[in-house]
Write a protein that binds this DNA or RNA. Structure first.
Lengths: 220, 220
DNA sequence: CGGATGCATTCTGCATACAGGATTTCGGAT
DNA sequence: ATCCGAAATCCTGTATGCAGAATGCATCCG
């Protein structure tokens, strides 16, 4: 959650055991491998992952900071019910992405706009069945828009929140109609940015993300 | 910063040394008591705060997660230059607050609206010299709007980011004209919420915060 | 049979000890 | 004087040990 806003960089030496544990547990919680409401105790987990309590504690602390674990009054931590908070998290992510596109509309360079238009065209000319290419194109476009905000802290936050939905987005079960619709919305977003219109860009992006979210939520 | 999104709850036992260290260091960094760019080493800091490295490490880890410290390649961490990132952080905070007011416009109850109107009127009838009352009124209004979003995770995040600006907001050097202007904007925001109009509410809040930020930034 | 009290257990929070790797510094050679 | 190499030092990451607190249980009393 922070999601502790920023993530730790990979440690410069050693296996970075704490980092590994953090990533593993985080994934296990998000994917639901560890059931929501499960009570976790340090010693138990420590011998489960085969490490001592020290690095485990660090991982647990960060996960609690991210809001993925809740400290229990009687000791130990509890796995939060991510599924029930998915809409809340989604709302935050949308807000952050719109903030980014607003800034990007003011700060994007002509060169970046060129790349964005190229991505828009590529997507439009792409074969409908090429789900992998579409996924890559989509990611590149949105990543570039975020980076154009020139706000690295914001970019980091969005990327962290995005992890919650990546598993869903990679599925990409879309009808040809839906796919075309989303592609035209990409054009709309970039056009608003090119026009240096933050309000229009934010609105277009919001509608776009909400539509995609609903599609995925209903199909997946 | 997550700013690790969520903060740890106060531990159930003991002095919660790690928490104390975290809060102290955080404040010291935000206020600038610890100069930006300062290199911090664990052992050194540990004996400075009079604790062992274990709780210190936990605090450091969380601060790094919040993006207030950056791990150095050659060991140790560096205090980031908050002042240079203040605009970036502000942009994020505005985005989050607008997200909250959007949700609030859809979900606010009639009872909450009553309280909001009362706060708006109280502010309008308030004496210009009552800076403290104005500050309290302002905080109550904005807090209530955020809570009306029914997104606790979002509320927590905003509160954390707000800490970066609290010291400035408490100053409240405003002219009578500025104060009145901000008060009328409060009315505008609540009116948009009452009309269940997220777009208008978000726009009004954005303008409001930006105006207040600029006033404070130029005066302080 | 129900409630309260005392004890044992459990679990976390903190401190200290250890090991590995990088950095820096000191010495010698060119 | 400079460059190269090796050793000493520094610093983090990890493991383990210890103490305190709260919980839960068993037992005893009413």
């Amino acid at each position: 959650m922070q999601i502790s806003a920023g993530g730790m960089k990979p440690a410069r030496r050693g296996p970075a055991l704490a980092e590994q544990i953090y990533v593993s547990l985080r994934e296990a919680i998000i994917t639901g491998d560890i059931a929501a409401g499960t009570r976790l105790r340090e010693v138990e987990l420590a011998e489960l992952v085969g490490a001592s309590r020290t690095p485990l504690r660090e991982a647990l602390s960060r996960l609690a900071g991210d809001g993925l674990l809740t400290p229990l009054e009687k000791g130990g931590v509890e796995v939060v019910d991510i599924e029930s908070e998915r809409d809340d998290i989604h709302a935050i992510r949308v807000g952050l992405d719109c903030t980014a596109v607003r800034l990007a509309a003011e700060r994007v360079t002509e060169e970046e706009l060129g790349t964005l238009w190229a991505l828009v065209r590529e997507r439009e000319e792409m074969d409908v069945s090429d789900t992998e290419g579409r996924s890559r194109n989509n990611r590149e476009l949105h990543d570039l828009i975020r980076r154009a905000s020139r706000n690295p802290r914001l970019v980091t936050m969005i990327e962290q929140y995005q992890e919650f939905f990546l598993s869903a987005e990679t599925l990409g079960r879309l009808t040809a109609e839906e796919s075309q619709r989303l592609a035209s919305e990409h054009r709309e977003i970039v056009a608003a940015m090119a026009a240096r219109n933050p309000d229009a860009a934010a609105k277009a992006l919001r509608d776009h993300i909400e539509r995609a979210y609903k599609s995925l939520r209903s199909s997946g």
